[in-house]
Every structure is written in structure tokens, then in C-alpha cells.
Design a protein around this nucleic acid. Structure first.
Lengths: 211, 211, 211, 211
DNA sequence: GGGTAACCGAGACGGTACGTCATGTCTTCGC
DNA sequence: GCGAAGACATGACGTACCGTCTCGGTTACCC
């Protein structure tokens, strides 16, 4: 006894996501309004409220489509250091694309909106963390010929991504290629060192392996 | 031709800053409104507009007073590693205080407001960077017995602070003490390595010294 | 070339009329909405639009069924004055029944909606006027033993019903029995007087017979 | 400790009342919307909500200014019958003026809105009743040389005005001059008769004097 | 009995107006 | 003449219905 009646219009969904995206790029986060999206998408406000809880919800929806590809690890066969550097540059580039600006705006809003923070972290950021973990692990394991457990990879990810995000979100100084390269190298060094320590205590916890 | 009449009331200024601070903690950034501040401070809206350009301007004003102390380097005589770790923990703690929440909120708003970004960076963040640079340089120079030029210290600062800010702003996972310690150690390692390289090419640029 | 398929459901029609009636009594005219009727009757909006043009149309439909009986003249064999008084009280009672509230609401709406006014007058009110005319004429002719022409009866009807409707629609003071009785008596007096005049000029127009 | 700040703008008040009046005449009661009034008066919605509770409240406000004059008794020195007839015609004319349409619309709305009904009756209608009572009493007392108590005059007012209002609100047949004249005469007759009865029982109640 | 209409519930959709809230400017008055 | 109180135009908010439309599912008639 499934429900009857017309089905949700996919074309409307896309029009809305595009309108939101466009407005964000053109006018910034505060320039994105429900009324503006509705007007630009040629859609009734009620239609927005029917399918999304808020404008943040709409922007989150644009992320799932657009951001994935821009942040995916494209692994090659080069040296580990190059691979990491390449990925850092991809992330840096991503923040200059529309999808990246959406992410940046949402990260900004998340600082003051617990609901946004929660939604972002449990949704996009969790998935992205998984992609990043897999990507970094692949690089590290090929580099060190060792298995890396999740906690350790997570920690290295923080070290790897932290400086780049810091510059992007806090300093807004263009991410310095040299600094990115240094970051990549430090992380590899640390992984290598940990791998050596691994001979004796394989199952070492994150905390111990760092000390 | 100096102006006459009553002078700006300092007590009003403080009442306003406190009201803004309180509202931010209680209701978040969007809960801070000009009208709300005026009502809570028992002050007319026009008085706010007379002395501040916007609510962001008010919050920036609270930073200058409150945030400085919370983020100042309190140098001791311990090993460099401990000094850095201590400072990282201080920063981490700071973000849980009201002043830290103001900074976090402003950083968030800066993601989508160029005006806020500019004001924040040219004001508070620039000064804070100077304090951080001086603090870190002092630790490093005592540790390595070498002079460090600004660009290099800046780069190390990004590496030192990046992961902590990343966790705070992006992941919101409580900053892991082990990770903070690892960060501190990596930065010291890198500084030490650079100091050794320094024998031959003292004036090396940032980029070269990292390669 | 007769059509095929299921026929209009009478049970739905009744459910709709009842729902409309109930809503009107419970929530007043503005509380009667197409959506509300549909929901309460367990019916799709489209079904309403298929059979009725508007909510006013629905309410008009309830009148034809319910109001007729409440306003019918039940002639007895008593003195004319009592007959008229009885009928005035029946009308007064009617306005306190649900059907009477529907009529009152529609009369109200008709003040500002030409379409409603037209529909009401060409439908229910015209029929009611005919019933009233027949009823009053019967009473008067038995009382005066004279034929009354339509125009004169209509005029007397206005005099008879006017004060009651005025109180109901304008003053909302409970219709005073004494006033109703006085009204009835005045109308009879006037009819009697007109009947005397009638000896000489039988075909006198309404206007003349009143002067 | 009186309040300070700018005072309510009278020009805005008038602009609003005029806009409401105009819209009512042009587009009918449902065509009068808060947004429409605001737009036409060149005023913010908030300003309307500041001073009036609803659009009905605005229309009620227009009545106090405009309707008074149109419905005032202008007593002359002619025979009582002429005086009453003249007043009835004035009322009839009034309903074709804008102010009369406002009253008609509000009377209509009052049928289904207890709040409107209450406001209208406790405000405009009560005052109008007092004017009418004074006017009719003046005519009757000059005519009969007797004092009339309020209840009796009220009752005669219902008889006098009822047919006219009935035609206006219910039938919408143009008010027939002959009928108006007959109404006036009947009321005078009744007053005269009551005046004769008055010799014996001066303080008779309304009910008794009618029986 | 199988088409073939129409009926019917459900509800998506573009709209209009609602009443509320905060904005930033302007005006008035009291100290 | 400063500063409070607050009126004002503006514009987005989220809600409620409007009237139209598109779906499936279900009758009921007709061949």
C-alpha cells in the first residue's frame, strides 16, 4: 500500500541546488536566502520547505554531489611524497572551486551553529574522512610496507591536513607550496619512524606509538 | 575647537561588550543581535551604531580585551618540547572559554564575510601572530641556539598550530594530547634539522631551507 | 454515447456537506477551508473542486437541504396575529441552528462578494422569498378576506422580516418577543387598512396603496 | 517620566486609512490586504501592525472619521413624517458612498467574526445607536408632545431601520421610496398610539406599552 | 470477462498573504 | 547638545491555503 500521487521532481531538485550554489558564489553565505533560491530556481518557497529543513540543508545537499570528486584521492605510482603533495594541492585547488566555497561557508557556519556542525560532521566530513583515511593509508602502506591502524592514520591525517586547513580558514594566506611539501615530508618521516618501532610492538596504540 | 558635552561613557562600553559576550555564549552567533545587545545592556540602538559599525565590530572589540591574555605565551625554563606542549594546551583551553568562543565565532563568520575576514586578520590575528612568532622564536632559539628568520618561524607556526586549529574548527574532536605532543616534537625536529643545515647557508630562504 | 465508469458517490457528497457545516459551527466562516473540509471529510481536494466551484458553493449546497424545513411556514388555524408571531419566532430560532449559522455566514460573505450575493439571491433567497410570500399571503387573505397582489405582500414582508433580520445581523440583541409581536401587529394593521382602501381602487399599485 | 522619541505620524495614519478605503471600494473586502494597504500607502507592514491589530481594525478606524457625518440626523422643522423619511433616504444614500461600503463590509464580516462583531458593536454601532436614538426621540417628542423612554425609542428604531437594513443587506433590492415612507408612517402611528396610552401609565415598560 | 472511462485519495507544485523579526536611519524629547 | 526611546522603510523569515496538476488504484459499465 505504497503512496500514490505525483513523484518528487528531480529537475526541481537540481534547479534548487544550482541556484543555491550560484547564489553562494555570487553573493556569499548571507546572500543565500530561501526566497532568493526560490526566485532564482523558479520554484515556490513551500517546495523548498517541503524537501529541505533550511538553507544549510540545501547547501549540504550540494556538497554530496559536487564535493566528492574534487576531494577524491587519485593515486598514481609515483613516490609517496609526490602523491601526498599532489593531494594537498588538489585540496587547495578545491577550495577555489564553487563546491569548495560551499564547504568553506558551511565550515564557517558550523562554528556557530551546533546543528550545522553536527550535520556536516556526521554527513560529509565523516565520508570525506573515510576517503582520506583510505587514500593516506594506501600511500603510507606502499611507502612503509606496514599495516597502519585507523587511529594512527587519523592522527597523521590531522598533521597532514591541519596546516593546509589552518591557512585556508584562518590565515587565508595562499597555501605555500613549500609548506605543503614540508608537511607531506614530515608526515612520511613520522610514518617511517613508527614503522621501525613497529618491529617489536605491532599492536601499539596511537598514543604509545607517538611517544 | 575641541568638542564639548559629555564624553563617551566607558561604563556603557563595558556593558555593551559584556552583553555581546554573554549573548554569544548563551545563544550563539546568530543570537547576538544589535537589538538584543541594546536591550540587555540597557542602551539605545543608536548608541551602538554611534560607536561600532556592526555587531561583528562589537565582538572584535571584546577580543582585544579578553583574548590577549588567554593566548599569551607564558615562557618557563623547561625543555622546549614541554614549552610547546604547554602552549598548545593553553590554546586548546582558550577555545573553551567565552573569549575563545568569540574568536571561534568570528573565524566562522570570516569564512563568508570578506569584511569580517579582513578586520579580523588585520587586527587581532596579526597581533596574535606576532605574539606567537615571538613566543615560538624564543623557544626555538633557546633550543637550537640559532637565529630563526620570520618566514621560517611563520612556517613552523603553521605546522604547529594547524593540526590544533583543524581539530577545533573542522573535526571538533577534542584535541588529542598525544597528537598535540607529536606536533610539538615534529616542529622541534624540523627546527633542529634546519639549524644543522644552517652552518653553510645562513640566509637561506624559507623554501630552500625546507627542501 | 453515454459515459461509463463509476458514478458520483453520494456518501462523499454528504460527508463533505457535513464537514463544511461542522467546521462552520466550530470555527467560523474563515475556519472553513477547502483543505480543512477535505481533511475532515477524508476526501481529496480535487474531489471538492470536481463538484463544487468554491467553499461558498459547498455552503450554499448545505442550505438547500437543511434550511428549507427550518424556515417553512407551518400554518395553523389560529388568529392571524399568532400565526405571524409564531413564524417570526421560528425564524429567530432558525438562526441559532447550524443551518441558520450557515445562512448568516453566507449573508455576511455576500456583503463583500458579489458572486456570493448573486448566487445566494438567485438561489436560496429567491425560493425562500416565494415560500414567505405564499405563507404571508395565506395568513393575510384569511385575515382580510381580500386578494393581495405580490408587490404589496412583498412590501409587507420587508416590514415584517426587516426588524428581525436587523436585530439578528446588525444589533445581535436577542430578538425581543415584544418587538416581534408589535411587528406582526403593525403589518396586520397595515394590511387591514389597505384592504379597506381596496373597495374603491382594486388595482392600485403598491406605491399608491401605501400613501 | 513620559516617553521620549518621535511621535506617531498623522500623515501616515491618514494615508493608511485612505488606502484601505480605496482598496475596499476598488477590490472589495478580500481585496483589502495588509500588504496591499502598505504598498498603496507607501508604508511598511510593520507600521500597520504597530498601530492596528488587523485590517478590520483599520477599517473600523476609517468609520469613526467618515461615517459619522453621513449618518447624522439633520433635523429640520417639517412634519415628523417628512423628517423620518428624509433620514431614511440619507441612510440609503450613505450605503452607496465609500464610507457606507466600509460599514456594509464590516457588518458582513461581523456575521462570521465574533471579534469584529464585538468591536463594531461596542464602538461604531453603539455610538450610532445613540445618535439615532437622540434623533428619533427629538422627532417623536415634537410630534407627540410626550417623553419617550429609551427602551421604547430603541424598539421603534428597530422598526424604523429594520426594513431598510434588511433590503440593503439581504435583498439588495434598491430601497423602495414608498416602502420607506410607509415605514416612517407606521412608526409614527405606533408612537402616537403609545402616547395616548400614556395618559394612565406613564412609566410603562417597553413590553407593556406594546401589548 | 476485458476494456475503458471516470471516480477517488494523495499530494507535488507555483503562488499570495500572513504575522514576526531584525536591520539601519531618522526624529523627538529630556537631562 | 548628547543620548534614551522609538517610529519608520525594508526585506527575509516560516506557515497556511489557494487552485492546478499528476499519479496509481478502484469501480462500474459495455461490448
Amino acid at each position: 500500500m505504497s503512496r500514490t500521487g505525483p513523484k518528487r521532481s528531480e529537475s526541481i531538485r537540481l534547479a534548487v541546488l544550482n541556484a543555491a550554489d550560484d547564489l553562494l558564489v555570487e553573493r556569499g553565505f548571507d546572500g543565500v536566502t530561501i526566497e532568493g533560491i526560490a526566485a532564482r530556481a523558479g520554484v515556490a518557497k513551500q517546495t523548498l520547505y517541503r524537501w529541505w529543513k533550511s538553507k544549510v540543508d540545501i547547501l549540504l545537499d550540494t556538497l554530496s554531489g559536487d564535493a566528492q570528486e574534487g576531494l577524491t584521492w587519485q593515486l598514481g605510482s609515483g613516490p609517496a611524497e609526490e602523491e601526498l603533495q599532489r593531494q594537498l594541492r588538489r585540496i587547495d585547488d578545491f577550495f577555489h572551486e564553487p563546491a569548495g566555497q560551499v564547504l568553506q561557508a558551511l565550515l564557517g557556519h558550523a562554528q556557530t551553529s551546533p546543528a550545522t556542525a553536527r550535520a556536516l560532521r556526521e554527513g560529509f566530513l565523516r565520508e570525506q574522512r573515510e576517503r582520506d583515511r583510505a587514500g593516506l593509508r594506501a600511500v603510507l602502506e606502499r611507502h612503509t610496507c606496514r599495516h597502519m591502524d585507523d587511529e594512527f592514520v587519523d592522527c597523521l591525517l590531522d598533521l597532514l591536513l591541519g596546516p593546509l586547513y589552518y591557512r585556508t580558514l584562518v590565515s587565508d594566506r595562499a597555501a605555500d607550496p613549500a609548506m605543503l611539501d614540508a608537511t607531506a615530508r614530515l608526515v612520511l618521516d613520522m610514518a617511517a619512524r613508527a614503522a621501525q618501532d613497529d618491529h617489536s610492538h605491532a599492536g601499539a596504540t596511537n598514543g604509545e606509538s607517538l611517544s
